[in-house]
Design a protein around this nucleic acid. Sequence first.
DNA 1: TCCTCCCGCCAAGCA
DNA 2: TGCTTGGCGGGAGGA
Length: 811
Amino acid sequence: RNVLKTPLKQAATSQVVLTERQPDCQPLTTPPKPKETSPVEPWTPTSNLKMLISAASPEIRSREQRKQLSNSSTEVLQAKHCLQEHLLGDEYEKSQPSRKEKSLGLLCHKFLARYPDYPSAAQKSYICLDEVTEELHVERRRIYDIVNVLESLHMVSRLARNRYVWHGRHNLPQTLQALKKVGEENKYIQQIQMIKKREYEHEFDPDGERNEGTASSLGSSEQSEMSFVELPGVEFHAASVNGRKYKSLRVMSQKFVMLFLVSTPQIVSLEVAAKILIGEDKLEDLDKSKFKTKIRRLYDIANVLSSLKLIKKVHVTEERGRKPAFKWTGPEVLPNIQDTKLETTSTTCSPPVSESIPSKEHCSKNLFPSKGKQNFTRHSSLIKLVKSIENDRRKIQSAPTSPVKMSTSTYQSLPVFPSTITQLPAIAKPQLEGQSKTAEEMQMKCALSSPEAVPKPEPSQQPTPSQPLGVCPASHSSVSPVILPHLHSGVSYAIYLHPSQAHTVTTYSPGFMLQPLPCANVTGIKSNNSKVLNKITTEEGDNQITTAEPTKPLAAEERPEMKSETSSQRCLKRSQALQENNLIKRHRGDEESLGTSLTFFPSGYLIPLTHCTHGTKADCSNKEKAGMCSLQHPTYSSPISGVIPMTASELKTVNIPAFHITPLNIMLSPNSIAAAPVLSNSCLNSSNASSAPNPSSSALNFMLQHIGLIPAGVQVPANPVLQHVPVSSQAENTSYSSGSTNVQEGKVITSSLQPSAPKEPEEPQAVTESFFRTPGGPNSGSSLSTNSDGTERISQGTLYIPQRKLEVLED
DNA sequence: TCCTCCCGCCAAGCA
DNA sequence: TGCTTGGCGGGAGGA
């Protein structure tokens, strides 16, 4: 076999060589002469041009190719030998295509050029591997690499031996949505966080014992169970479907894509990806070679994905060095699977908020069509999903009515949230949609779920079931609560958005860049800043790593710039961690260059809503009472008191699963603690007058009292955001709290998030002391527990203030 | 020196 | 049994 393959490849090479050398080597003209016109000749500008032209008409090209390639291999071999004889060794070597020219990425480009992105249904393209290998002059093995990745995206599917069907990008939106769902279900965000945390722990305590809680928390069985995610109608016919499927490049590719889809910003380092793909449970005894192998495969996949323009190579520069990473540049993926127009029509939208929870039956029906052969290789998470839907429904229906109801419906409109409900396939949305719902309700939910999605509450943008993704009117005013479903252990949280935070933001990064901070106190953070610095650079000098998400410019551009500049500057001034002027300059420069700049998170409330029940109408009515339910009142104030000032765009991009792990960095000085109602009930007494009119304060207080977070009689402004949390002199980290990844001049300054710990009420010090409290550690409080997966759980009523920190790295 | 990833061995699995 | 498919890791080119 080797005898057959190797000469073939060399023959291909020799064609190139001969073509280029011909003018100078007359004796060599005979065999390769016809190949001068080879349209696939990739090594000269002329041939590249020909290739491009032929790409427009692949059939013609194929015909020509077949004709040309009909030359016997012996002729080619003869030519090669002849060439070798006439060329010096060095010359011959130089004549070989460089490594780059043989790269998988380039090969993939050539491969893709053969087929249209969106083939019409009539013109089904079939891929014959033999032809492809011949025409592209590559080994079969390489084509498999490409095809496997394309298969993972359902751009091709295997028809038979040697034969594939080209689907193009038609299936891409659905595939990505499906992958995102599965990725959320697999809690990849948490895994990423855990890996980063572990990295940190290892870095600062290399000899120390591994945190068993975290060590065992990853690599769940789900991970190993993970199989190929299919789409209805795109069947999987891999030859070794039952054998090596689980290790295959397809699955790996899908997982890799999932990491991007669940991360915010959508940047994934190879290292983290490799670890996740290997499975964290195996990391303990991970041998280096396995890791290296995984990295190799990831490069292979990344090359193909790059050719598809789905990702782009970037670099993350950390203390330990420059790490290769990739940034998602593909279409923004939305949670609902509808039609293929999604990709082009709804890249910046949020899902419709008016949807109701699809029934299990609907879900199953759509996921696993009963007619004919089942098209899905069922992912375990999908089965769980259906079950969880049922359970959630039951809970919702049986739960007493409460003002929190809204959160239920909000679940589905928060694509990035890991709630199982959120992950419901949106397939059945339109049908299940409470079509009787009023536009008002819909809009209100819309504003709730993604107030940042669309800044203008124009009726024309009101989401309708026909709209694949909710284009929600934005609420600019006062408090913008958002229900965060199922953060820790299924606990929902409510977040209030302060209008002053409503300015645009860069994406919040809970992903790979998150680095635990090595500080046990505020100053400690400062001293260890460098440890957690991350810098991302793109090879292309892309200076908009996070903000320039091509599909998410809406909020950033349209949102009124409110206080970002001043607040950020204020925060910066107070930042002792950023003493270096140049860092500040960079920071400011980032803001300016980004146009929308940073958002800083003051403290706020993030309140678990475990006991809150769901229901739309009561909730709406409550909100209406508060004057926030109608379209005319984009301002929404949830009776639930959770308040976390954050920007709308943050909410849009924030990854809630990560958020609950390492979200806000609220470094409060003792002085400011009193102003941070989050920390203790007593703090709720903070009576700072809210500068913003707050129509819902009574409702808020009612809720707070109702759920026992504040004593009766205590009044809390419904908008206890920044005004309650004056940034202290030690609160420098607040200035980072946006967690934004900022880019300037090709560099991205990323946030460093640290494993957050719930804060002990009445113990302001816990804010800092609990930074790296490990589960069960000295700082564990009664309100804190650890889930089986190692994640921390806060019991009901606990106010949870995650912390994170953004550091600016100067070159 | 490290990153990147080409290359091809060889085993699993299919026809 | 031959061929297809693709996991895997050595090692070389490139930065």
